[in-house]
Design a protein around this nucleic acid. Structure first.
Length: 201
DNA sequence: GTCCTGATGTGCT
DNA sequence: GCACATCAGGACA
């Protein structure tokens, strides 16, 4: 599983494109967390897009606040927030500066560094941040370098088995197919429901 | 398998 | 005051 992974960090230009494009392209990439001598690596298998002040599920729906300011900043940075009294959520800022958008990293296929009995330690955005670990101390940091970054394999192969479905755990904006996941991958947070598609449109 | 609940803190609508 | 981009555990069937 953890063969000879030679990972190359994604560049800022990767993140500053349209959010749905970045979301699809993040599948199959690797999230790397480094803390002292420890290092966790997980393959991204599920993401969700939150796009702009017109998206009722996006935190920026009500405009810029101190919490959402990072989403208005430059692409390639981490937007992390705390919810339900106990979980952190990791997002990747996308698009141009001043346009608020981000991608929630929802699930990873463990590659290395994970310990414990849980066979699916990062199958969900809350579990992911608990296992790596990721908290508010990383909010606003760059994802282009350690201690938290995303890389691709030197010989990156395109991912074919992408499906799009409604986002999970929201009450408004459920008509949009802005959740992307690797079809058939057992580390996705839930089984696919009937409403999924080959395209987000 | 399904549905429902409790745990818990923060930002704001 | 209340909603919330969650999760694990329980009660069913």
């Amino acid at each position: 599983m953890a063969k000879d992974l030679k990972l190359i960090p994604l560049t800022q230009s990767f993140y500053s494109r349209s959010t749905l494009e970045v979301a699809g392209n993040l599948l199959g990439k690797y999230l790397v967390r480094e803390q002292g001598r420890k290092r966790w690596i997980g393959r991204i298998v599920e993401v969700e897009a939150y796009i702009g002040e017109d998206d009722p599920a996006c935190h920026a729906f009500h405009g810029r606040t101190s919490r959402t300011a990072i989403m208005y900043g430059p692409a390639g940075h981490a937007y992390i927030y705390f919810t339900y009294g106990m979980y952190f959520m990791l997002n990747v800022v996308t698009e141009k500066e001043d346009f608020p958008a981000a991608i929630l990293i929802r699930a990873l296929e463990p590659v290395s560094g994970f310990s414990g009995d849980d066979l699916h330690p990062a199958s969900g955005p809350g579990k992911l941040c608990k296992s790596m670990p990721i908290d508010l101390s990383l909010n606003g940091t760059s994802l282009l370098r350690k201690p938290l970054w995303i890389g691709k394999e030197a010989h990156d192969h395109s991912i074919r088995e992408i499906r799009w479905s409604p986002r999970i755990g929201i009450s408004a904006g459920t008509e949009k197919l802005w959740r992307a996941y690797l079809y058939g991958n057992s580390y996705v947070s839930r089984k696919s429901n009937s409403n999924h598609s080959l395209s987000p449109f």
